[in-house]
Amino acid sequence: MNDTLVFHFEVDGEDFTSAGQASVQIKKNLRQLGMSPEVIRRVSIAMYEGEINMVIHAGGGHATVTIEEGYIEIKLEDKGPGIKDIEMAMMEGYSTAPDNVRSLGFGAGMGLPNMKRYTDFMTIESEVGAGTTVTMRVNYA
């Protein structure tokens, strides 16, 4: 693959039921590009967790997926409240999600850990009161 492909998505912060549209679209795109099922699964889950986080905590945001030579980069940017303690947020089981979100089966404190689990590289830049940018990469052969 010589050309760099870039996909942009706006993640709607109001709509919990449609959360995942960007991930589902990316899944289709990656399948068309002939990526392996395991790579597609890892990218899809990491991105969905990120989408859900933006809906729960940040009122939505922007997702950019770039297909580079050898890896897929997912960048999730929001202008939400930021993460006070990233180390805590990365711990399995730690969650600040509200009850209405938990009743849907989210808020188990597994979102960020899953994003880390399914990607080869992940960074979180966050400023309280300004927003959060999560960058993830999944390598492919």
Partner: peptide, 15 residues
Amino acid sequence: IMSNVNVLAVATLAD
């Protein structure tokens, strides 16, 4: 036992 539509997104993405 969950039956909200997010279950279907998870099922799709987790294969």
